[in-house]
Design a protein around this nucleic acid. Structure first.
Lengths: 162, 162
DNA sequence: CAAATATGATTAGCCTCCCAAAGTATTTAA
DNA sequence: TTAAATACTTTGGGAGGCTAATCATATTTG
């Protein structure tokens, strides 16, 4: 019966997941943005110019979903749509000043809670944590994963895998 | 500007979050349950007897939400409702055989991916990871958090905090 | 060039999630 | 025995996701 740190580790991991999830909601309320909206807005602003399909593939959402979310962002005045000249099938999304503002106020779901306190740790602790997370990445099969999103949500994909 | 392991650490953390989230959806498809349904079902089964309000407070959901989810679980034949004798306002929720089956097939969102591989790590690595996660818990303010849920999702709470 | 095909985005329709407020039934307290 | 509290459900609503179908524009090809 070795030590079995497996369970406490899982619990800690769960706490972290839970915390980030709650944080994501809380932050959303303060910004007035939902997590998904945040994601999309960030993605748009990060590129300055962005087509829905680009956002969709970056976030691994369907185009339709992006249309949906962007609808709301436009309604809130955080994003504008503009037909591309080069290819009139395309739509260019831009963050408005208000949109950039909203992002600035809510810098990053994790980052805000994270950076300062992490920086205050001893170097060896930082290194240990990083190493541990990399290991966990490996364990969870997350090594080669896009780093784009933070956390999102949603209905279940019921397409038969087979 | 010392080393700044902050960014790679955040990225690793994001990968992990992302991985668990995707895993949660994938597992849901195989089970035919959504993450929320899994949560509720687990909570019900874990107590053998459970009232909606108990589940709601454990998972920090509203009663209405639980009613909703339970509706679907009942519809799927995984859970039964039964009026309590002692207090006829109460409803007792029970997992059916099928419900327990479903849970058994999908033991745990993380656990499945996790336990074996984690166990195969050296003891010192396990200890390191645990310590790191505890530290992270602290950083993210997740120490005193319920361990109940895994991950869920959903619409944003728009009630004014003030 | 014209027809067929491909691509980008939206629309429509479906389901889930989560909530607050109102409603119903039951229990407890006055 | 009425009033208040409790436990759950109903109702209604906003958001998040998806697929399939549609519309408009581009590209390819005969």
């Amino acid at each position: 019966m070795e030590s079995d740190l497996s369970n406490p580790t899982l619990q800690a991991l769960r706490r972290i997941l839970r915390a980030t999830e709650i944080g994501s909601r809380k932050l959303a309320t303060t910004t007035g943005l939902t997590p998904s909206q945040m994601l999309v807005l960030r993605e748009i602003e990060g590129r300055d110019q962005a087509t829905p399909s680009a956002i969709a593939s970056a976030l691994k959402f369907s185009q339709a979903t992006i249309t949906n979310v962007v609808d709301r962002l436009v309604l809130s005045g955080l994003v504008t749509r503009e037909r591309s000249d080069r290819d009139k099938r395309q739509i260019m999304l831009h963050a408005t000043a208000a949109g950039r503002d909203a992002l600035a106020c809510a810098p990053d779901l994790l980052q805000s809670q994270f950076t300062d306190r992490f920086a205050s740790l001893a170097a060896w602790e930082q290194a240990m944590i990083l190493a541990s997370l990399e290991k966990l990445s490996l364990i969870l099969g997350a090594q080669d994963m896009d780093v784009a999103p933070l956390l999102d949500s949603g209905a279940i994909d019921r397409t038969e895998p087979g």
